[in-house]
């Protein structure tokens, strides 16, 4: 199979280029894209990419595969290869450090901006803070985010304003804490988000929903935040 890989080594390349590499795929097994990258690296050890858990829970290997963002370790070739070819590029919209490795600091900065931690001003009880199953259920579809950046780097609004628009991943997390019955900083959190860029640069394009490898729905979470912000201002 022909694999075309985005290559860039800042020490020797003036500009990035695509390199075509022929990879022998073993018969009878539906490999994941990450397996293919291992085969490539066995041939050419200089190809750089991130990977860790190889089971879709750590979020290291978010990549753009034949035009769509996803995790290499849980994307089978049968889902992604078109006409016998696989094109692998780094996640779009972030600076490339080398090959398939992007600089994620802008993405992490947006995550940090939403204060991604529980805030509760009341003294902690001797046991856990009680929460009903119904209250807990509100966190489902939110807490599972693995910070892989597939969504934010598929979002045109994030491409345009990565410094000012929090982006789908960060906003999903913002809502995760707004929705947590154990958190008491709702008003403070909303005030932090109440500007023309942080939330309202979302145009409902829904690329984030389309690519999330965990099947999460940032657009819906953003909708809830919008609702809370509007309610707050009336």
């Amino acid at each position: 199979m022909l694999v075309s890989i985005y290559r860039y080594n800042p020490e020797k390349d003036q500009v990035p280029y695509m390199e075509d590499i022929e990879v022998e795929i073993p018969e009878g097994r539906d490999l994941m894209v990450l397996d293919v990258l291992h085969l490539v690296k066995a041939k050419d050890s200089s190809v750089a990419y991130r990977r860790s858990c190889r089971e879709g829970v750590c979020g290291s290997d978010g990549l753009n595969m034949n035009g769509k963002n996803g995790l290499a370790c849980i994307t089978p070739l049968s889902d992604v290869v078109k006409k016998g070819k696989l094109v692998i590029r780094p996640l779009p919209g972030l600076p490339v450090i080398r090959d398939l490795v992007v600089d994620m600091s802008m993405f992490y900065k947006q995550y940090e901006k939403i204060k991604p931690f529980l805030i509760n001003d009341t003294p902690a009880p001797a046991i856990e803070r009680l929460q009903t199953p119904e209250e807990r259920e509100k966190l489902d579809g939110l807490y599972e985010c693995i910070l892989c950046a597939c969504c934010s780097t598929a979002c045109p609004s994030f491409w345009w304003n990565p410094d000012k628009f929090v982006g789908p991943s960060g906003l999903l997390q913002a809502y995760r804490f707004l929705a947590d019955s154990r958190d008491t900083a709702t008003q403070e959190r909303l005030a932090d988000l109440d500007d023309p860029f942080s939330v309202f640069r979302c145009r409902g394009i829904m690329n984030c929903v389309n690519v999330c490898p965990k099947g999460l729905n940032p657009t819906r979470a953003i909708g809830h935040i919008r609702g809370m912000l509007l309610q707050r201002s009336t």
């Binding site: 009903t132 199953p133 209250e135």
Partner: peptide, 23 residues
Amino acid sequence: GPQAVFELDHMGLPFSRTEEGRI
């Protein structure tokens, strides 16, 4: 152990819950 687990809840860990609201 229990103290360490309760700390995690206070830190925000989204444990599944019982009808009584406990972990």
